[in-house]
Amino acid sequence: MPDTAVLDVDGTLVDTNYQHALAWFRAFRRFDLTLPVWRLHRAIGMGGDQLVRAVAGEEFDAEHGDDARDAWTEEFAPLLPEVQPFAGARDLLAELRSRGWKVVLASSGKADQVDAYLDLLDARELCDGWTTSEDAEATKPAPDLLQSALGKVSGRAGVLLGDSTWDCEAAGNAGMPSLAVRTGGFSVEELTGAGAAAVFDSLPALLDGLDRTAFARPD
Score class of each variant (00 low, 15 high):
A171V: 08
F200S: 00
S187E: 08
G175T: 01
S178G: 07
C127R: 00
A205D: 05
D135I: 04
G209R: 10
L80V: 11
E137F: 14
G175M: 06
L203F: 01
E63M: 14
W130Y: 05
P177S: 12
G158S: 04
G155R: 09
A23L: 06
E82T: 11
Q147P: 12
A87C: 14
D119R: 07
G162F: 00
L80K: 05
D67R: 14
S164M: 03
V199H: 07
V55D: 02
R29L: 11
L80E: 13
D119G: 12
R26W: 11
V9I: 08
G129K: 09
D66S: 11
R29Y: 07
G185P: 00
S98W: 02
A87D: 13
D119Y: 04
R90I: 07
K152R: 13
L191H: 09
D66L: 11
D112G: 14
R42H: 05
F215Y: 09
Q113H: 15
L145Y: 03
K152M: 12
G109S: 11
L145T: 14
D67K: 12
R99H: 02
P143Q: 02
K110A: 11
L207S: 07
L120Y: 11
D15M: 14
G155H: 09
A171T: 05
W72A: 15
K152I: 13
D66A: 11
V153P: 03
L96R: 11
W130M: 02
A171Y: 00
K102E: 12
T16M: 05
E58F: 00
D201V: 08
A77V: 14
D67T: 14
V37N: 07
A138G: 14
G184H: 06
S164Q: 12
G65S: 04
F25Y: 12
I44C: 03
A94F: 00
S154I: 15
A174F: 09
L206D: 02
L210W: 04
D61K: 02
D61M: 03
G109F: 01
D91K: 03
D163V: 01
R30H: 07
V9Q: 02
E190M: 11
A196P: 11
L207Y: 03
A197D: 09
T4C: 05
E75N: 01
A136E: 01
V14M: 08
V6P: 07
G65K: 02
G88R: 06
R90V: 06
T139M: 12
L105V: 01
P218T: 03
E82W: 15
D144T: 05
A71C: 07
P81R: 08
I44H: 00
E74Q: 13
Y18D: 15
D66F: 03
D115H: 14
T131S: 09
A116T: 07
G100H: 04
R212N: 14
E134Y: 12
L80Q: 08
R42P: 06
G185N: 00
D15G: 02
A136W: 01
V83Q: 03
L145P: 01
W24K: 01
K140T: 04
L80F: 11
D208F: 08
G195Q: 06
G155Y: 10
A5K: 08
A54M: 06
G129D: 09
F76L: 13
D112V: 09
